Simulated assay, not measured.
Amino acid sequence: MIEAEATFDGTFPFAPRFSSAPGFRMHYVDEGPDDGEPVLCLHGEPTWGYLFRHLVPVLSQTHRVIVPDHMGFGKSETPEGRSYWLQDHIDNLERFVLALDLGNITLVMHDFGGPAGMGLAARQPQRIRRIISANGPTPFGHADLPERLSANAQLSPWFRWIVQAHAGGVLRSVLGQLGFNILSTLKLNGFENNAVITDAWLSAYGAPFSNPAECLGAIGWAEGFALGTHQVEQPSPAAIEIIRDKPALAIWGEADRTLHAEHFLPMSSELFPRAPIERLKGVGHYCFEDTPDVVAALIRDFIRRS
């Protein structure tokens, strides 16, 4: 867990806040007017709220921007004796949202923030106003999800590595040293913008994983895929009807080598057939790092229009 006041040479200047509602010390950023419509930004693997550091100042001029760190990531606690499967992260997120009593939420989701956010939407559809996925899957009652995941895993270096490392018994030991191999992990997933790499940047992404005990979140997400223990939330027919009528936007970096557009963008199109899709050439999996200004502008303008 990173020190609460750490700003990484001023690149993450937001006041730290904490909630105990999920049963552990969950860190979150809360910027913008208190009465502003909330934008809930959900990160994935192996990142944290730092991923959204360029988006927060853009949206917080008019909206209340809330950026939690999932259990085992960022400035949040990494408790022992807890499981780190998808359903656990959905549980934590729901408790967090209910504790803050958030409504009219605009979801901004990246990587496994997608299934976590859609899990929240399945449980609390009446609290969601808009859905924005940026290189993040939006599973929501898709019967063919296992086939999509399997087809994608055959193309993805990251998922192929997970399967091989788990079979070889080295997944936990390698990811247990994530603080030292963070850059190679990000590159394996499809990080393209080398110009952004600085000592502060490397420190920000490596610091949450300073020892094996702090890597349980990252290990859990990968191990859950290998074991098949992640459970996608199944929405009720009523939840599907509510959510499919919401304004939605999909943003996808086409150079993503972890989540291929051909397998995951159709999920968004099927759920939101009228939703715009912005495909970004030359942009990798971490679109918020590769082209932050473009992504922030797309999100800001979409929120204004809808």
Rank of each mutant, 00 (worst) to 15 (best):
V163M: 10
Q126R: 15
W85R: 10
L40C: 03
I240H: 09
A218R: 07
L120C: 14
F302A: 04
D111I: 09
E214L: 11
A218S: 10
Q154H: 11
N152F: 00
L120Q: 12
A6N: 06
D245R: 11
K187E: 11
E223W: 02
E233T: 15
T11E: 10
I182G: 01
D9S: 10
I277Q: 07
P125A: 05
F140N: 12
G228P: 06
S210Y: 10
I197E: 13
Y205S: 01
G136M: 13
P237N: 14
H27K: 02
A226F: 02
S156R: 05
Q61S: 04
G220T: 11
D256A: 13
T291K: 11
P146L: 10
F140H: 05
R130V: 07
E192A: 08
F73M: 02
E214M: 12
T138F: 04
R148D: 04
A275P: 00
E262F: 00
R274V: 05
E77F: 09
A296R: 13
P68V: 00
F8H: 02
H63D: 02
S133A: 13
H110G: 12
L171S: 09
R300V: 08
G113E: 09
V67F: 03
P33H: 02
Q87R: 03
E241F: 03
A222V: 07
P266M: 08
A296D: 13
R130Q: 15
L55V: 07
V163K: 09
E77D: 06
D111G: 14
F140K: 08
Y205M: 03
V196R: 09
I299A: 13
V196P: 07
Q61L: 06
S203L: 13
N193R: 15
R127A: 12
T106S: 06
